[in-house]
Amino acid sequence: MFNSNNDFGYKIKSLQAATSMLLRAGRGNMGTPTPLQPKKSLILYEHEACPYSRRVREAMTQLNLDFESRPSPHKGHVYRDELKQLAGKAQVPFLIDENTGDQILDSQAIIDYLFAHYSKKGSTPSKFQKESDGDNASISNKLASVASMMRGVKADHPKMNEARGKPEQPLHLYGFEASPFCRLVRERLSELEVGYVNHSVAREQIQDIGGFGFRLNIGDYQPIKGGKRERLMKGVMSEKLQFPFLLDPNTDTQLYESKDIIAYLNQTYG
């Protein structure tokens, strides 16, 4: 396995993460600027490499919904034991909506629920309906997991993770599902079993598309007025939109670059 703190290893991992994005044909990029965010945070037991969890996160990005991620990778105990008690088995994804009291297993059931309750139309778009006649995960979805070498599928050192326990306050990660750099951070959070609030910051317009500091716009960038990105720029992100962005209230740490975030996670929670 490549070391993400090594320049060569980090570049390889970034390429693998970008390949995952391409295999998903850009799903998890765009979303509504005016999400119907519930009062109480949605809770999702998942792990990064799971193709079924990915389907749910892509829908969350489309709806631009924030949620609390409780990483439950194989061999893990920090949240996985809790998942077994709540769901009756260690199956992800598993959604808890404290706004309605609903608890849902199965990726398609979760997706249909999210669009029914938190979309303006109240119905599941065709591209988010069942992907195959089999197990709801298409070949391209499964290949996307393989392309990232299944990172995030298994706890890195479960005994140490369990002994460390949960952070006193959940971390906050700002980004969007399809970003390969956000994926690298989510993979590490999953391996370390560190819970966090996933703040979906979907691209809301063509001008939001870009990478490496460039966007497809002429002149100064302007987010959609009243949209989620504009609110973030005027609030927590202080006029700078760059993802991933990590806030750790336990240490008063704020970081932007994925490589720096991963190094911080290794040092603080590894």
Rank of each mutant, 00 (worst) to 15 (best):
A163N: 06
N141F: 09
M149R: 01
A144F: 14
M150D: 00
H157C: 05
V146W: 06
A155S: 08
R151Q: 10
M149F: 06
E162Q: 03
G152Q: 04
A147Q: 09
I139V: 15
L171W: 01
L143I: 03
V146T: 12
A163F: 04
M160D: 12
K142T: 07
K159N: 08
S140Q: 02
H172A: 10
A144C: 10
Q169M: 13
M160C: 10
P167M: 09
H172I: 05
A147C: 14
D156P: 04
R164D: 11
D156F: 09
L171M: 01
K154L: 02
E168P: 02
Q169N: 11
V153Q: 08
K166N: 04
P158Y: 00
E168N: 09
P158M: 06
K166D: 02
P158F: 14
R151N: 15
M160A: 15
G165H: 11
G152C: 00
L143C: 06
A163D: 08
Q169I: 14
R151S: 15
K154Y: 08
G165M: 10
S140R: 07
P167S: 07
A144P: 04
L143H: 02
A147I: 13
M160E: 12
P158S: 14
N141R: 15
N161Y: 06
E162Y: 05
H172G: 09
D156A: 11
N141A: 13
H157N: 14
N141H: 07
K154G: 03
K142F: 02
R164F: 12
L171P: 01
H157T: 15
N161W: 03
G165C: 09
R164H: 04
A163K: 15
K166R: 07
S145L: 01
R151V: 15
M149Y: 00
E162K: 01
Q169V: 09
D156R: 13
L173K: 05
M150I: 08
E162T: 06
I139W: 09
L171E: 07
P167A: 12
P158C: 00
R164M: 11
K142H: 02
I139D: 13
M160F: 07
L173F: 09
R164T: 02
G152Y: 04
